[in-house]
């Protein structure tokens, strides 16, 4: 399990919990709008060494079928994965609207 996006509700002040917040891992907004460049995995080259998975500060890289897969909802486009990849299987591409 990882924190995941929930339906966004609006709150009045009375409804704000006094003590703890909601259950853990309660996300309401994505981070994809922060990005100007996005990492793209070349699945032909990727050998699944998982270095990008280990070094991603946001934890958006997982390994599916032996290849790196990126959750673009939460990737901020920092580029650490592209730089850490020794075989050049990740490239940063401009984000297009």
């Amino acid at each position: 399990m990882r924190p995941y996006i929930r339906e966004k509700k609006s709150f009045t002040f009375d409804e704000v919990p006094e003590n703890t917040s909601f259950e853990a891992g309660y996300l309401t907004t994505v981070n994809s709008g922060w990005r100007s460049i996005r990492p793209v995995v070349n699945t032909q080259k990727c050998v699944g060494c998982e270095q990008c998975y280990l070094y991603c500060p946001d934890g958006v890289i997982s390994v599916k079928d032996g290849k790196a897969a990126i959750d673009y909802d939460f990737c901020k486009g920092c580029g650490i994965c592209a730089k850490i990849c020794r075989i050049g299987a990740i490239e940063m591409e401009a984000e297009r609207k």
């Binding site: 399990m1 990882r2 924190p3 509700k9 709150f11 704000v16 917040s21 909601f22 259950e23 853990a24 891992g25 309660y26 996300l27 309401t28 907004t29």
Partner: peptide, 9 residues
């Protein structure tokens, strides 16, 4: 709030 990015306590 209301975003909580930890999934542990």
């Amino acid at each position: 709030f209301p975003q909580l990015c930890f999934s542990n306590n």
